[in-house]
Amino acid sequence: MVVNIYDSANQMERDLRSTQEFIALKEAYETMKQDAATFKMFRDFQNMQIQLQQKQYQGQQPSEDEIKNAQELAGKVGEVDSIKQLMEKEKAVDQLLSEVNNVITKPIQELYQE
């Protein structure tokens, strides 16, 4: 029997969209997007995180101003209920994906335990 692992992965992608965790995340995202100022703050926060990660990947340290700005924005983001809800729902999806990853990689873990 020939197994096409990509067919299984595509089915998992479709299944993920139907999980309670993903549906709750999508609803929280849509709720957060309804407030333009909150959505802009969220996007700014995401962009800042990406820029800091890129610097780290390149072996550069963020400046003190960048760190200060990141901390301030993180504090503001953490005070917004709709963003807090979104982050909670994102954690639930991350947990689900972590559990699925453990199932998927079980053959590799077992292989190295022999």
Rank of each mutant, 00 (worst) to 15 (best):
E27T: 12
Q71F: 14
K55D: 01
F45K: 02
A36L: 08
E27W: 02
Q60V: 05
A37D: 10
R14Y: 01
P62W: 08
K68V: 05
A74R: 03
Q34I: 00
M1Q: 07
M87W: 00
A28P: 08
S8D: 04
R14F: 11
M32N: 05
L25H: 02
Q54W: 04
M32D: 03
L96M: 13
A9Y: 09
I5R: 09
V3T: 15
Q113L: 10
K76N: 06
K55Y: 04
K33C: 07
I67G: 01
A28S: 11
D15F: 11
N47G: 14
L25S: 04
Q20G: 02
K40D: 11
F45G: 02
R43H: 15
R43E: 14
Q113K: 15
Q113V: 02
E88F: 11
A36F: 11
K89N: 09
Q71H: 12
N47C: 03
F22R: 06
E99Y: 01
E110Y: 02
Y112T: 11
D94F: 08
E88T: 15
K76A: 03
N4P: 00
D15L: 09
K33D: 00
Y29D: 00
L52I: 13
V3G: 00
Y57S: 15
A70K: 04
Q56P: 02
M1A: 06
T19A: 02
E72S: 08
A92Q: 13
F22K: 05
D15P: 03
Q109T: 15
D7L: 04
E13K: 12
E110Q: 07
Q34D: 08
K91N: 14
L52Y: 04
L86I: 08
E88W: 03
D35K: 04
S63N: 05
S63V: 04
D44S: 05
E21S: 11
I5Y: 13
Y57Q: 11
E13D: 12
V77F: 03
A70E: 07
S82D: 00
K76R: 13
E30I: 01
Q58W: 04
D44H: 03
Q49Y: 08
F45Q: 07
I67Q: 15
Y57P: 04
Q61M: 11
Q113T: 05
D7P: 03
G59I: 13
I104W: 07
F42I: 03
A74G: 12
I67V: 14
T38G: 02
M41G: 08
N69D: 12
Q58M: 08
N102M: 11
A37S: 12
K76Y: 07
G78L: 04
M87V: 12
R14D: 06
Y112Q: 12
K89C: 09
P107G: 09
E27S: 13
Q46N: 10
D81V: 07
K89L: 01
E30N: 07
M48P: 06
D35R: 09
G78M: 06
N10E: 15
T19K: 01
E90F: 11
E110F: 09
I5Q: 03
Q20W: 10
D44T: 05
E79Y: 14
M41I: 12
I23P: 06
